[in-house]
Design a protein around this nucleic acid. Structure first.
Lengths: 245, 245
DNA sequence: CGCCGTATTGAGCACTGTCAATAACAGTGG
DNA sequence: CCACTGTTATTGACAGTGCTCAATACGGCG
């Protein structure tokens, strides 16, 4: 289970740490830095690899590090005393991890798929932010965007019906793929039905039924459980309540 | 409805614009400024008074101004095409308005009660932020806090049962009163049951029934519809799922 | 090929939303 | 001051939706 793949320390050729050849650089926080400033950042960064379901952060842990996701997918979640879980967001390559917290982490963070992250000690990051105003500005933008996303989440959770929630979710996933220059149409859905349920505030069964409904209405096709082919984007958006683009 | 003791226009002496004597200064963004820098801020600020239910911002409007709430209470909301509404948050004195947006506003903002705000042109605020790093830092903290709050909202909306939602809401209101140095025990609830419902993702009827349940369990008393006396805070927190403090 | 975890489907029920009636309340005008 | 009216809150009855429990199907992997 937690078979550490032994890649915690640098590989001989630090391909991932080479910011210059980083494929999420344009999307990530680092885009705010010029080539030469990038090396300053590179010097204080370490790479972290995670296996599926491996836990990176336990809610309540001290917030010692911040990260940029470079590969894979992460989930942010909170678990109530009786085991109920709410997933508050998924992180994809380019996303920043650590926007909400100052001292203590406010969510558990786990890998959905095999993931790679670029880690920074919070103190180092603070110094970088202080020395590079554009970096600070970009972090602010990221935080604002995360706030808007969380509020969209509130709208979805509070006022959408199950099929609407799922439609909204699928469109969001598609949009995020597109934003990363990846194919947006057959959307890969790496997370389990349980994860989707805990994100949408539903049960697994209801999620499954909602998938079936959308399939029966010819709005989507399901090549397999983890790939959704959006057949009628417009109609899907209409079902979603036309929130998302 | 709730006769707030004030009149729209205030005393001849513009008490509200006098930052030096502002009673929410310690709570607000401005706390980051020294006495003399405060005058710079004061010079570019204007006061805005709002009557109950008066609309300050329509979702989609250009985000020309930002505000600090000095009196009263505001609500942030989004309305879906078919009229369903989700309230994503309430703002109280000291709270900053405009954290999430850059170009376009992402929520409608209305006054719950007679409210007073301190307004700044976004351009002016940006200049202030640029010239005063501590102000920038404080804005960042506020944004982070708002993000944590929105995520708490997601948890509440996604995974709590109606009574749990209401308990959680009441405790939150109480906590926020306390944070402002105001009496935390008989909690004033200025907003309507409809507002509460749209915040908690419920219907008015369910909110009302949940109030009744909590009253019947002796956890709260209801002197009137807009005041809640928390009788057993511990038990209420237990019902809430012990999220909030 | 068989096993195990995940996803889907089915049946029944509890809960919450809907619709409707009543009650409390505030503001208005006689 | 009180009756009248419109608004808001509460309560009741009922139905539909989504959850619970249970069975079946699918798919990856040994």
């Amino acid at each position: 289970m937690n078979t550490r793949s032994g890649v915690a320390s640098y590989t001989p050729v630090p391909c991932e740490t080479a910011c210059a050849s980083c494929d999420v650089r344009a999307l990530s926080l680092c885009a705010a830095l010029r080539q030469d400033d990038l090396s300053v950042m590179e010097r204080v960064s370490t790479v972290r690899n995670l296996l599926p379901d491996e836990i990176l952060i336990h809610e309540g842990d001290p917030a010692r590090r911040v990260y940029t996701v470079t590969k894979g997918m992460m989930r942010l979640s909170t678990i109530l005393a009786d085991g109920r879980r709410q997933i508050t967001g998924f992180l994809m390559p380019g996303d920043f991890l650590g926007l909400a917290d100052e001292e203590t982490t406010s969510a558990t963070v786990e890998a959905v798929t095999h993931s790679t992250l670029c880690a920074f000690a919070r103190a180092d990051m603070n110094r970088l932010l202080h020395d590079h105003p554009p970096l600070q500005a970009r972090l602010m933008q990221f935080t604002r965007a995360a706030l808007r996303e969380a509020r969209d989440g509130q709208i979805m959770l509070g006022r959408l019906a199950p099929v609407e929630k799922l439609s909204s979710f699928l469109l969001m996933m598609s949009t995020r793929m597109e934003a990363r220059g990846l194919p947006a149409n057959p959307v890969p859905i790496p997370m389990s039905r349980t994860d989707i349920a805990d994100f949408l505030g539903l049960t697994v069964e209801t999620v499954s039924r909602s998938f079936t409904k959308l399939r029966n209405q010819q709005l989507i096709r399901l090549p397999d459980a983890h790939h959704v082919d959006i057949v009628d984007r417009r109609a899907l958006a209409a079902v979603a309540g036309i929130d998302q683009a």
